[in-house]
């Protein structure tokens, strides 16, 4: 049973373990931007890499207990390729949908990464988009953030356009280069209103419900939040990207906790160091100097997902890893 402390339910968020290391391919991630996790803990990670290393652009399949499964797709413009991947989501059949904000298309792969099809049309009319960023799939519907048109669109999974809402601005219900999106179990829509430094909540008709946060670095304030996720308790997880933290808000939007990163070296990280004994020593010296703070901390966390079994996975963009937390309702002695 939880109790109350200073007006909030006293739930703790404990660090569990990490997955990954910085790597252009194979057992690591390079500037990952988003991930999707299936019911069995299989995680799909989109690697954006950078222009002079197009070999780093692809998706990695691994598990949350750090087994490497494989990788798929490559940099390019051909069907099945990725150029500037931004976001991904799984449907109930286990197919992966990937939004690409340069190619203006949604590409669909099966669970093993085989290319199936793509759809999408550039523009600012209904059923067109300009730089799709966040996507979320519920049943047979995709909610898509059409970022440069400052709006949210609703599509069938085959790309058939259904509806849209939002416009440019900073008032309630208005958006400025929105990015991530998610839905809670009641069907409410949460949008990371990136350049307005806030999260907005809408109902499925697109009517504004609530705004959480403002610019800043204090509790409940954001600096360019880019991803949002809500668990079954209604707690809201936000990647407060340029503040290098994840904030957790209670269902009513009050600040509950912040995660700044608690990384411990992962298995892949260890095998990297084991073949580089000089770097083991350098790392030890560095830890002696800063107490391990640098390696623990998030650096531009960019995606947060709550798994079926209650794990909270945070994709740590600059460090190429996933830090996994557990929401502890029962007390755990650290």
């Amino acid at each position: 049973m939880s109790t109350h402390l200073f007006g909030l339910v006293d739930v703790a968020f404990n660090y569990s373990h990490s997955v990954g290391r910085n790597e252009f391919n194979g057992t690591g991630f390079r500037n990952p931007v988003d991930m999707a996790i299936d019911d069995e803990g299989k995680v799909y990670v989109l690697n954006r890499s950078y222009e002079n290393r197009p070999d780093g652009v692809h998706a990695t399949i691994a598990t949350l207990d750090e087994q490497f499964v494989g990788e798929f797709s490559k940099f390019g413009e051909a069907p099945g390729d990725m150029y500037w991947p931004t976001s991904c989501a799984l449907d109930s059949a286990g197919n992966l949908y990937v939004a690409d904000e340069w190619l203006n298309r949604i590409t669909i792969y099966d669970g093993d990464g085989e290319y199936l099809r793509h759809w999408g049309e550039s523009g600012d009319g209904p059923g067109q988009f300009n730089a799709p960023s966040g996507i979320a799939i519920v049943g047979d519907t995709m909610w898509l953030v059409d970022s440069k048109n400052h709006r949210v669109q609703n599509y069938g999974l085959d790309g058939s356009f259904k509806s849209q809402f939002g416009e440019f601005g900073s008032g309630n219900g208005q958006l400025n280069l929105p990015w991530g999106i998610c839905l809670d179990k009641n069907g409410l829509i949460y949008v990371a209103d990136w350049r307005n430094d806030r999260i907005q909540q809408f109902n499925q008709a697109g009517e504004w419900q609530a705004t959480f946060g403002m610019s800043g670095s204090g509790p409940g304030q954001f600096k360019r939040p880019n991803a949002v996720c809500v668990d079954d308790d209604g707690d809201i997880y936000v990647c407060d990207r340029e503040n290098d933290r994840v904030q957790i808000l209670a269902p009513d939007g009050r600040f509950r906790a912040q995660l700044k990163g608690d990384h411990q070296i992962s298995g892949w990280g260890k095998s990297k160091l084991n073949s580089n004994p000089d770097m083991i020593r350098q790392r030890t010296m560095a830890i002696t100097h800063d107490g391990g703070a640098y390696e623990k901390a998030f650096a531009n966390p960019c995606s947060v997902r709550v798994t079926e079994n209650g794990q909270i996975a945070v994709l740590d963009h600059t460090r190429g890893r996933i830090q996994v937390y557990v929401k502890e309702k029962e007390p755990v002695l650290l």
Binding site: H263, I265, R283, A286, R319
Partner: peptide
């Protein structure tokens, strides 16, 4: 001061 090496996290 001693910095962290490039591997495994930059």
């Amino acid at each position: 001061a001693p910095p962290y090496p490039p591997f495994p996290y930059g």
